[in-house]
């Protein structure tokens, strides 16, 4: 499956976020092995060099560990996953607020809408 990328941000960042998302959702579990760089490139339809950068970034975030000769694995450190979950939550909220502001809505009126949605469930 080839992914459609947003136009305004680097492709490698979008791939990093997508993997973080998979970890938060539990689609990727602690200790799971990631595809090899070339396999991942082929699956997502991007350049091998871009994927190398993605893997380097994930390693720097300590979300993954590379075991020599074995491949790249999702960390089994719950603390790291928890931190990334909190960071993503913050990031999603900030994006939402930016979008609310661009329409001129106040946070309070949006909170009312959110509450009514929650009640509706």
């Amino acid at each position: 499956m080839t992914i459609d990328f947003a136009k305004d941000r680097p492709i490698y960042l979008q791939l990093v976020e997508s993997i973080c998302g998979d970890v938060i959702k539990g689609k990727l579990k602690p200790g799971d092995k990631l595809a090899s760089v070339r396999e991942f490139a082929l699956e997502s339809g991007v350049n091998v060099n871009t994927v190398q950068r993605v893997y380097k970034e994930l390693e720097m975030m300590e979300l993954t560990e590379t075991k020599r000769g074995q491949g790249t694995f999702i960390t089994t450190d719950d603390g790291v996953i928890h931190t990334i979950r909190e960071q993503m939550k913050e990031q999603v909220a900030m994006q939402f607020i930016t979008s609310i502001e661009s329409f001129g809505f106040t946070l309070d009126e949006i909170i009312e809408v959110l509450k009514s949605k929650k009640g509706g469930n």
Binding site: F5, K7, P10, I11, Y12, S44, N47, N49
Partner: peptide, 30 residues
Amino acid sequence: PILDQVMLLKDGHLCAMDVVEEIRHERGED
């Protein structure tokens, strides 16, 4: 998505050459 760099030709001149991810990073555009 499969490119590292792009070079842009215009009327037989090399108008620009840049790294794709840098264009996205610095200018926020594709």
